[in-house]
Design a binder for these strands. Sequence first.
DNA 1: TTGCTTTTGTTATATCGTTGCATCTATAAC
DNA 2: GTTATAGATGCAACGATATAACAAAAGCAA
Lengths: 175, 175
Amino acid sequence: MNRGKALHGTVGPSFARGAHDHTVCLEEAVQRAEALCEQRGVRLTKQRRDVLEIVWSGHRPLGAYDILAVLVQEQGRKPQPPTVYRALEFLQDQGLVHRVESLNAFVGCPLPGERHSCQLLLCRACGDSAEMVDPEAVESLKRSAGTAGFEVEKVTVELKGLCPRCASDRAGAGA
Amino acid sequence: MNRGKALHGTVGPSFARGAHDHTVCLEEAVQRAEALCEQRGVRLTKQRRDVLEIVWSGHRPLGAYDILAVLVQEQGRKPQPPTVYRALEFLQDQGLVHRVESLNAFVGCPLPGERHSCQLLLCRACGDSAEMVDPEAVESLKRSAGTAGFEVEKVTVELKGLCPRCASDRAGAGA
DNA sequence: TTGCTTTTGTTATATCGTTGCATCTATAAC
DNA sequence: GTTATAGATGCAACGATATAACAAAAGCAA
């Protein structure tokens, strides 16, 4: 878990730490979600939990229709797009998942409950993502915008590039 | 024009400066585009120039289908989506327009030719946008990502909130 | 002119997201 | 327990965004 961790640098089980036990990773995410929803008096229904688990099945952002496909595969019923989008909306409102604007996709948030604007690292090679917290950058952005008279409400930062693994693979291949 | 201007703070005819002569603004943008394309030996065809002018008809990001609608309205012919997307792709490659990821829309770049990652200010009330340059923030982001072993190739920053005009309108309304 | 490359036209289709309304389910008041 | 209510889900249709594949045309150079 990340509770009590200083909010600077990469957070969550990002590719920065290499391999990890994803079963545990997923379990902890669901437990955090349960605790938060309980605490806030909102309902983490089966649909919502299912969608959360699918999003958390990896660290690669998933499209709404990817999620839908998994739901269809896993269950007898045949949910429609609104089902998925509604669940995602709830999860976003609760800060449990982030929307990745540049991919039209969704990814689990390793820091639910903490008020933060997230900075996402997106690997263009393997598709994996990680969340990073850089308060200085965010402060600088807000300051610059403020100088221009702009009142910032939401900060979206997405960095595209190569994750450590893919970068070294590329280097190793002689590129 | 912005040539020679220090690359820090808002750039272009943003809402930071209030009203401006947009006819001149558009003309200069097209002239910059022509000069750049000439210099690079690429072709700013009629289609591409038309799309550029439509994008630059205001400072509000336009969707591809908005642009398409204007093309249909202005011309006898009836272009199809690929026409617009191809023109937009060209203009993006040449750094003449930016894609606004969080809006699935496109907006003219006031700094073509300069190598920069753009930080966009997006007003949620009036829809207008402005471009800002904050090298410190970008450096900080790259540094943070680098610490995690991530090789940054592209930095996307979009700030949503209220532009000066809309912010003061709101305040004036007693809100 | 001829041949080649680049651009545009055209049709169809893929992908992403929402509206509107009916139905069901959990919760609470009685 | 029954019933009223709000919240959640099911469902059908649709709207918005984006691309694939191939044909035709336009620019350019030998």
